[in-house]
Design a protein around this nucleic acid. Structure first.
Lengths: 150, 150
DNA sequence: TATTGTTATACTCTATAACTATA
DNA sequence: TATAGTTATAGAGTATAACAATA
């Protein structure tokens, strides 16, 4: 039952941890989708909102870069967010090629919804003792680099 | 610079761990996309392949369930995988409403590619000591339930 | 009656290429 | 020349509703 076709050889400890993490993320992805659906937004749209800061105009090409997609993609994305009243375009005087995007009050609210809902730890974590939670956090800090390296 | 608008109040230890995890997954998502792109497949298509087992025919509605999407979605998905020679449809005699999907040899190979490439732990984990790796794995096991509960 | 898979429809995402207006 | 954003185009994902075949 375990050694089916000879599929899995030796799995390192790190690989085992990664497998567990993938399983967790599969579950959590449903939460993402649920939040987006409740706001009647496409997942990509919630992603865009999550990238933005209130009162912080963002050049469209910068949004494209954060989303790892083409500029042309952002045009339509912003069109639809703007039609929904969540963001608005604003010309940027110092470089007239650039257009800035800003969150509207409605957009700020939606963005807060997304962030607060997604920032809550998964249910699976509440199962852990406080010591385990600290251990998990500290190990992840070390993995990602205490400073900022990703 | 840290307390901008009063955005973040108190963040629990579990929430901190979750935030780190989200940061990790943002990076790893690029790996997913890269693997799919290298195989010239859409991410959803690689997901479908990953769900299937070699020599294990799968009803289409079951595939839809694993992917958390509608049956009608799977029709087109399988159409395209079949056109690529990665899967094939097979009638199921015992219930003639059902169609089974099976991986072709080419599909098995692609599925192996996807799985082996995605099963490797992220680079961030190699930065950890063996003790940390074990700790991470064991905590995650406890979080997800040693048995199977998610 | 309920389920499986398909079709039709509509909307969104996504990339590429060509275009403009700037720089 | 290079960059920012748009447009046009094409292909894929996704859901809903309606449908035929089967249970």
């Amino acid at each position: 039952m375990a050694a089916a076709i000879g599929e899995q050889r030796k799995q390192s400890t790190a690989d085992e941890a990664w497998e567990l993490l993938l399983r967790l993320m599969m579950v959590e992805r449903l939460r993402f989708r649920g939040v987006a659906a409740e706001l009647d937004l496409h997942p990509a749209q919630t992603g865009a909102l999550a990238q933005m800061e209130p009162d912080t105009p963002m050049p469209m090409h910068e949004l494209a870069a954060s989303l790892h997609c083409d500029n042309s993609n952002v045009t339509g994305l912003v069109d639809r967010l703007e039609a929904r009243g969540l963001v608005s375009r604003r010309p940027y005087e110092h470089d007239r090629r650039v257009t800035h995007i800003v969150l509207t009050p409605l957009g700020i609210e939606a963005r807060e919804q997304v962030r607060t809902r997604m920032r809550a730890a998964p249910q699976a974590f509440s199962r852990l003792s406080r010591a385990d939670q600290r251990m998990l956090r500290d190990v992840l800090r070390r993995a990602l680099g205490t400073t900022d390296a990703a």
